[in-house]
Amino acid sequence: MTVSRAEAKRPEASSKRRRQGSSRYSWSSLFYVAPALAFFIVFVIVPIVQSVRISFYRWDGITAATPVGFSNYVEVFTNPAMREALSHSLVLLFFYAALPVVIGLFLAGLMSRIRIYGLTWFRALLFLPQILSSVVVAVSWRDILAIDGPLNETLRAVGLGSITRAWLGDFGTALPAIGGIGTWVEYGLCMLLFLSGIASIDRSLYEAARLDGAGPIREFVSITLPSLRPQISIALILTITFALRNFDLIWNTTQGGPGTSTAVPSVYIYQDAFQNRLLGEASALAVVLTVLTLVIVGIVQLALRESPDRAPRSTPEPAQAPGKEERNS
C-alpha cells in the first residue's frame, strides 16, 4: 500500500516540475513549434476566419462584395433542399459511423479470440479500403453497383434477378448504396483501432472472468467493450467527421443524384462555391456544417468520456487501480 501511495503521488510531483519547466522555457519551445504553427495559422486559421467573414457577404469571388448580414444563414436554415441534405447526412451517419464501429468491434473481437493463420495478411487486407484513393473507390463501386455489374450478376445467378437494379441510379437505393461504400471504407480503420485497444487489455482480466464462469459473449460485453471506450470514442469521432464532410465518394458516384436523393451539404458547398460563384452562401453553409460536426462530435465525446465512478472497470492497467481507489477513499 505504501508503494502504491508513493506511486500515486509521483505523477503530481512530475507534473508540477513540468509546469515549472514549461514556463521557464516557453519562448524557446515556441521556437520549435513556430514552423508548424505558422502553417497552421496560414492554412487553417486564416481560411476559417475568412470563411466566417465571407459568409456575411454576397460575393461572386471577383467583384466587390455586398454585406448581407445573416441572410446567408437564414437561407441555409429555411431552404428545404438544405434540410433534405441534412437528413441525408443523418442517414449516412448510420452507414459511415455506426455500422463500421459495430462491424469493427465484431471483427476485432473475433480476431482477438480465434487464432487465424495469416492474421497479419487478413488485417492488412481488411484495412486496404482505408488507404485507397477515394476516387478509385468510387469508380470501382460504380462498376460493381452498375446495372450489369458484378453485384447484379451475382444476384441473378442465385435467383434474385427480380431485385436487380442500377443501385446508384435508383431513387430508393442510391443513398443506402453510397452508405454501403462508406461502411466498406471505414470498418477497417475501426477494426484496427479496436485490435490495438484489445492488445493492451490485461490478459489476467480475461482469466479472472473465465474463472468466474464467463462465456465468450459475457467476456466481450463485460471486459472488451468497456476497455475499448477510448478507442470507440476515437473511431466515432473519425467516422462521424468523415460522414458529415464526405464529398468525394458522392461526387464521383452520383453527383448528388438521381434528383437530389444523395445530395448532402458538402455537395451544395462545392456547387455554390465553384460552379455558382455564390461564395457567401457556400461559406455560410460550410460554417454551419463545421459547427454541426463539432456539436455532434462533442456530444459523442461527452457521452463516452471516462466518468470517475466507472474508472476502475475501464482502466486498461489494473495495477494502477488499487492506487486510485486508495486516493478516492
Binding site: 504553427l37 495559422i41 486559421i45 486564416v46 476559417i48 476566419v49 475568412q50 467573414r53 465571407i54 457577404y57 460575393w59 461572386d60 469571388g61 471577383i62 467583384t63 466587390a64 462584395a65 455586398t66 454585406p67 461564395l279
Partner: peptide
C-alpha cells in the same frame, strides 16, 4: 490567434473590393 487574424483581416474592406 484567430482573434488576432480576424482583427488583421477586418482592417481591409469588403472581399473583392479593389
Amino acid at each position: 490567434t484567430s482573434v488576432v487574424a480576424l482583427l488583421a483581416l477586418s482592417g481591409c474592406g469588403a472581399p473583392g473590393s479593389g
